[in-house]
Amino acid sequence: MNQLKPEGHLQNAITLDTHQYELSISEPPVLLEPGDLLKVSGKLKNISGRDWDIFIDDKETIKIGIQVYEENKPGRLEFRRSLGVDKFFDGATIEFECLIDTKPLQQGKIRLVFDLVAEGRYWFKEKGAKPETITVQVLPETAGNLIKVGNQLKREGKLIEAIANYRHALELNPNLSWLYYNLGDALEKQGNLNQAVTNYYHAIDLNPHSFWFYYRLMEMLYSQGKYYAALGYYKTIIKLPQFKNNFHKNKSKKLLIKLLHPYKIINNDVINFLQENGFDPDQYITINNEKWDKSKDFLSV
């Protein structure tokens, strides 16, 4: 229980005596990845036996205050959180939530002190009240951690922030194939198709045995109308070990149908590709494809 001793008066009326309260903070995550928002919630209960006037005239005087201390770093950051009421009635409980941006904080342990503040005058702990303290750990700013942050931002639709995290990760480690893949995916969602393709190529260069890298590149080329270029990569994908898996094989066949459907004129290279790799052209080429009937007659001779 926090209790203040009588200490005189605030200007225009709020007295400090009998400001007694219970302040409790929920357990936050003990580990944070770089750039995470630290979400902390708590409760404040008035046990003074009287109501509190929160405002003096039009200014909110009493607020939740948060002091942030970084390990091995002098000084502190301070934040305020409104109580959201004009009057804090005796026996009432106010629930509050704080979001703290960790981007300006260095890696390592950070200590957060929660207390009431008489705005512009003092923190209640200076008058004998007991604050609540929690400690969290900000993880190192590694490429792996930045990728995790970027992936979360991408899921939230925050593509500009996600791309910034991926590019920062590239500065730390430019040899991660999945990093280029995720960057390409974010750029594609943003509409930067050429940059997306470039990053898919980088991913394949670093890991030429990934089914998903080729598959995603082929889809990207298809969306750009580069059907024959995408079909060329199909010749590579069917030679990968993963192609023996039925899931990958069936997914590839569906993509092959998409790739061949736009061909209005079927050329010998396409027909030879299908036959050499055990595909029945009748299953993949529709009657809308011109000259297919003539090609079939030629092949049956």
Rank of each mutant, 00 (worst) to 15 (best):
N175P: 00
N175M: 12
N175Y: 15
L176D: 04
L176S: 04
L176T: 02
L176H: 04
Y180G: 03
Y180R: 07
Y181P: 00
N182E: 04
N182G: 04
L183P: 03
L183Q: 02
G184I: 03
G184L: 07
G184F: 03
G184W: 02
L187E: 00
Q190P: 05
Q190S: 13
N192K: 11
L193V: 15
N194A: 13
Q195F: 10
A196G: 08
V197C: 00
V197K: 05
V197I: 15
T198P: 03
N199E: 05
H202S: 15
A203I: 01
A203D: 02
I204A: 03
L206D: 00
N207E: 12
P208G: 09
P208Q: 14
P208R: 14
F211K: 00
W212T: 06
F213A: 06
F213Q: 03
F213R: 02
Y214V: 01
M218C: 13
M218R: 04
E219I: 14
E219R: 15
S223N: 12
S223K: 10
Q224L: 14
G225T: 06
K226H: 14
K226M: 14
Y227T: 06
Y227E: 05
A229C: 05
A229R: 11
A230F: 06
A230H: 04
L231D: 02
G232Q: 08
Y233M: 07
Y234L: 10
I237A: 00
I237L: 06
I237P: 01
I238P: 01
K239E: 13
K239G: 08
K244C: 00
N245V: 00
N246A: 15
F247M: 11
H248S: 06
N250W: 06
K251F: 03
K251P: 00
S252P: 05
K254T: 11
I257Q: 09
I257G: 11
K258A: 08
K258F: 12
L259H: 02
L259A: 05
L260C: 08
H261Q: 11
P262C: 09
Y263T: 06
N267C: 11
N267Q: 13
N267L: 09
N267G: 08
I271Y: 10
Q275V: 14
Q275A: 14
E276Q: 15
E276I: 03
G278Q: 08
F279G: 08
F279A: 10
D280T: 12
P281T: 06
P281Y: 07
P281R: 07
D282Y: 13
D282S: 15
Q283Y: 10
Y284D: 01
Y284E: 01
I287V: 15
N288R: 14
N289Q: 13
N289F: 12
